[in-house]
Lab assay of single mutants.
Amino acid sequence: RPRTRITDDQLRVLRQYFDINNSPSEEQIKEMADKSGLPQKVIKHWFRNTLFKERQ
């Protein structure tokens, strides 16, 4: 599967949610997917990777 490119607008949506809650529920992930147009799987990976980077 090719790598998903996240646009600036999509990144802005993800960052807004991450700043509020870095561990979103399934419902919140679905909401983000609707707003950003990204697949839920991509959003889950983005949150996991971003949380890991923040903790380092």
Rank of each mutant, 00 (worst) to 15 (best):
D8P: 15
D8I: 08
P39A: 10
A33M: 09
R15A: 05
P24D: 01
V13M: 15
Y17G: 10
T7S: 14
Q10A: 04
V42Y: 06
T50C: 04
L51F: 05
D8Y: 05
L11E: 15
V13C: 07
P39E: 12
A33F: 03
N22H: 15
I43N: 00
S36A: 13
I43Q: 00
R3L: 12
L38G: 00
N49A: 10
Q40F: 07
T50E: 11
F52D: 09
L38E: 01
L14D: 00
E31C: 05
R48C: 02
N22Q: 13
F52M: 14
M32L: 06
Q10C: 03
D19S: 12
V42E: 12
V42A: 09
E54K: 03
S36C: 07
F52C: 12
L11K: 14
E27I: 10
Q28P: 00
P39D: 12
K41V: 08
Y17A: 07
Q28K: 04
N21I: 04
G37N: 08
D8K: 14
H45F: 12
K44V: 09
Q40T: 14
K53V: 07
A33L: 02
T50M: 10
Q40H: 13
L11C: 00
D9P: 09
R12Q: 09
D9S: 14
K41T: 14
F18G: 05
D34F: 12
I6N: 03
S25V: 03
Q10W: 01
N22W: 06
Q56T: 04
Q10V: 02
S23R: 09
Q16Y: 05
H45V: 13
R5S: 14
I29D: 00
D9N: 06
L51Y: 12
D19I: 10
S23K: 10
L11D: 06
F47I: 04
G37M: 03
E54S: 08
Y17R: 03
I20K: 09
S36L: 13
E54W: 02
A33G: 05
W46E: 03
P2W: 01
K35S: 05
P24G: 01
D8T: 12
M32S: 00
D9V: 07
R48Y: 03
S25F: 01
E54Y: 04
T4W: 00
N21F: 03
L51C: 09
R48W: 04
Q28W: 01
R12F: 06
R55I: 09
F18S: 09
K44Y: 03
P2V: 13
R48M: 10
I43A: 02
E26Y: 12
L14A: 00
E26H: 12
K35N: 08
R55M: 09
A33I: 01
Q56F: 01
K41A: 10
I43F: 00
R5P: 15
I20D: 09
D34K: 13
K35I: 04
Q28A: 11
E27F: 04
I29E: 04
I29K: 01
K30M: 08
K35Q: 13
N49W: 12
I43S: 00
Y17Q: 06
L51I: 05
M32G: 00
K30H: 07
R12A: 08
D9C: 15
S36M: 07
K53I: 08
G37E: 07
S23I: 02
G37S: 07
K53R: 11
A33T: 08
Q16D: 11
V13D: 06
N21Q: 09
R48L: 09
S25Q: 05
K35W: 03
S23W: 05
R55D: 15
D8C: 14
Q16A: 10
E54M: 09
R12L: 09
T50D: 04
I6S: 02
R5E: 15
N22L: 09
K30I: 08
R1S: 03
Q40E: 15
L38P: 00
Q16I: 02
S25M: 02
R3S: 13
R1C: 08
M32D: 02
Q10N: 02
P39F: 01
R55G: 10
L51A: 11
R3T: 15
E26P: 13
S36G: 02
F47N: 02
N22T: 14
R15D: 04
E27T: 12
N49G: 08
T4E: 10
Q16S: 15
L38T: 02
R15S: 10
G37L: 04
P2T: 15
D34R: 09
S23Y: 05
E26F: 10
E26G: 06
F18E: 02
V42C: 14
M32Y: 04
R15C: 05
K53G: 09
L38W: 01
N49Q: 09
I43K: 00
K44Q: 04
I43L: 02
N22A: 13
M32I: 06
R3K: 05
K53H: 10
L11F: 05
Q16F: 06
K53M: 14
Q56R: 15
R1Y: 13
L51D: 05
H45G: 12
L14Q: 00
L11H: 03
R15G: 05
D19E: 13
P39T: 11
F47A: 02
S23P: 06
E31T: 12
I6K: 04
H45W: 13
Q28Y: 03
D8A: 11
I20W: 06
R55L: 06
N49S: 10
P39G: 12
K41L: 12
L51W: 04
M32V: 07
I43Y: 00
N22S: 12
A33R: 07
I6W: 02
S23M: 11
E26K: 12
T4Q: 04
K44M: 06
P24N: 00
E27W: 03
E54L: 08
W46I: 08
E27P: 09
L14W: 01
D19V: 13
R5W: 10
Y17D: 06
T50R: 10
V13G: 03
D9H: 10
E26V: 09
D8N: 05
K30D: 07
K30T: 10
T4A: 07
S36Y: 06
L51Q: 13
D19R: 11
R48E: 14
I43C: 03
P24T: 01
T7A: 11
P2H: 12
P2Q: 15
L38I: 08
D8G: 10
Q28H: 10
D8W: 04
L38R: 00
D34M: 09
K44P: 01
R55Q: 10
F18Y: 13
F52S: 11
Q56C: 15
R3V: 12
F52K: 15
V42H: 03
N22M: 13
L11P: 00
E26R: 09
I29F: 07
H45A: 13
S36R: 00
N49D: 12
S25K: 11
V13S: 11
P2A: 08
Q40R: 13
L38A: 03
P39L: 04
I43E: 01
T7G: 06
R12N: 10
I6V: 09
H45N: 14
A33W: 02
S36W: 06
Q10M: 04
D9I: 06
L14M: 14
D19Q: 06
S25W: 00
T50N: 11
Q16E: 11
I6M: 15
I20R: 13
L38S: 01
M32A: 04
I6A: 05
L14F: 10
K30R: 06
Y17M: 14
I20Q: 11
S36H: 10
E26L: 09
Q16C: 05
E54P: 03
R3M: 15
T7P: 09
H45S: 13
Q40S: 13
N49F: 06
T50G: 06
R15W: 08
R15H: 14
K35H: 02
D34S: 12
M32W: 04
R48T: 10
F47V: 07
F18H: 05
L14I: 05
K35V: 04
E27K: 15
F47M: 05
K35L: 07
R5T: 15
N22V: 11
G37A: 06
A33P: 00
N21S: 12
H45L: 11
S36P: 00
E27V: 12
Q40L: 14
G37D: 09
F18C: 07
L51T: 10
